[in-house]
Amino acid sequence: MDQVVFRKPKLLNDTPMHYCPGCTHGIVHRLIAEALEELGEYDNVIGIAPVGCAVFAYNYFRCDMYEAAHGRAPSVATGVKRACEDSTVFVYQGDGDLASIGMAEIVHAATRGENFTVIFINNGIYGMTGGQMAPTTLPGQKTTTSQQGRDPKEHGNPIKVCELLSTLTGPAYIARTTVTDVKSVRATREAIKRGFTMQKQKRGFSLIEILSTCPTNFHLSPLDSMKYIDEVAVKAYPLGVYKDIGLIGEEKKQ
């Protein structure tokens, strides 16, 4: 009798994903589905897709989905949670969606302590529209709207979302991870699972920022894009848990 060690999680359907080869969106989609499956969540999950490369996320998940206006996914989720208080809601956003046009929405959802889990893809670029500068683009990083490299004097400085939101009272769990290797992929799945558990226990707002790749607009191979994250991006966006008020039933870590 052979044992299945690894298979596609149930919450993902059989639609081929449109993401570019090696794009980490695909990995994160799977981790969300795996985390929910481990928590026994299937029938009562609702996802909110952003505007950006993940605008078509609703094509890949089996659960009920909304496609929100650019930057407004946290507001849509707020409305959904009021209407369906017992549903497990995840909000999937990119850095343009969350930290640029949607900054007010994410800050206020966080400070309201909204009981949903935000999966924040920080790849430092606007992917869907062809590689423009994002709020998380690093100084010196060349994009189609910072062609000589981002100049803080002219284009402002990157925004560190985990640090920013962790100063608020509403969030229960904020962490930043990567998916550049097996170890970090598994750590990301645990972080996502913890976010969903916070939500189930109504502990408040949870957000997992995942440093992600955009091979096409990095002009790097999928593998070199992963190296870029490990060698460059993590220096600007230190990994770790930025806020964790603990789960019910968990003894306080001294």
Partner: peptide, 22 residues
Amino acid sequence: IGCAFCATMCPDCVIEVHKEGR
């Protein structure tokens, strides 16, 4: 060896990994 490292890194759920069951 059925470690599933490949499947863990795959963005498109291409690989299903099986192992000799006990």
